[in-house]
């Protein structure tokens, strides 16, 4: 079976600063993979490489068997066109730390935007699906609310619905609860938990250890731009082998 995400020696530099220093990992379809690690460890950068919001500097990265951002002809790599990159991103949903909802559109408008203008769905069909998605994240009554009228937790749930509207085969979450007030974290994690239970392939950058332990199939601990250790939650969180993992867990647990 083709891995949903496969990374081989992925490196990423911003000028002189090397943020990723050779990442190898695999995520199988239907798997939930949590990336943990101190800030600056490169986990968000890696996530952003997966849908080519950042381009990798070295190594290879595949999503669903397709090379990210490039096409290989012989031993030469060719950059993909903007339209080809956009085409591949349709299948990858992304949820941001700061929600990034479109403030000039209502909740339902945010969710309909891409299905209508990227997939060419009719407005009626897109609206119907958008309302169903809002229902699914528990916000059926907020369809016509603008983002500024919603709480952080509600905005993030709309953002998840917006990503799901593209029927992605992979969902990326970049610290989805880090910008939320503590009492709003639960409602977002509940939606993510349901999503995982339905078999969605997910890669989640998070500081929520409880969520990682309970929902993740694989936990990857990163530090200094490398994978320090990876395994089941029981292995990595319960019986960490590396000193750096133990030191990190001691601080956050």
């Amino acid at each position: 079976m083709t891995a949903m995400i496969k990374a081989e020696g992925v490196r990423k530099s911003f000028g002189q600063l090397e943020v990723l220093r050779g990442i190898d990992l695999q995520v199988a379809p239907g798997e939930v993979c949590c990336l943990l690690g101190p800030s600056g460890s490169g986990k968000s950068t890696f996530l952003r490489c997966v849908n080519h919001l950042e381009s990798v500097s070295a190594g290879r990265l595949w999503v669903d068997g397709q090379l990210v951002g490039y096409r290989q002809r012989g031993d030469k790599l060719h950059e993909l066109r903007e339209s080809e990159i956009a085409q591949r991103r349709r299948d990858i949903g992304m949820v941001f730390q700061r929600f990034n909802l479109f403030p000039h559109l209502t909740a339902v408008g945010n969710i309909m935007e891409a299905p209508v203008h990227v997939l060419g769905e009719s407005r009626a069909e897109a609206r119907q699906r958008a309302l169903a998605l809002l229902e699914r994240v528990g916000l059926a009554d907020k369809a016509d609310a603008y983002p500024a009228m919603l709480s952080g937790g509600q905005q993030q749930r709309v953002a998840i619905a917006r990503a799901l509207a593209m029927r992605p085969k992979l969902m990326l979450f970049d610290e989805p609860t880090s910008a939320l007030d503590p009492e709003l974290v639960g409602e977002v994690l509940d939606v993510m938990r349901d999503l995982a239970a339905e078999g969605m392939t997910m890669m989640v950058v998070t500081h929520e250890m409880g969520f990682a332990r309970e929902v993740a199939d694989t936990v990857v601990f990163m530090d200094g731009g490398v994978v320090v250790e990876a395994g089941t939650p029981a292995q990595v969180l319960g019986d960490p082998q590396h000193e750096r993992t133990r030191a990190f867990l001691a601080k956050v647990l």
Binding site: N51, N100, L101
Partner: peptide
Amino acid sequence: GQTEAAHALGMK
């Protein structure tokens, strides 16, 4: 972040 969110949705 607005541009990123739009790009992530597959918008050109």
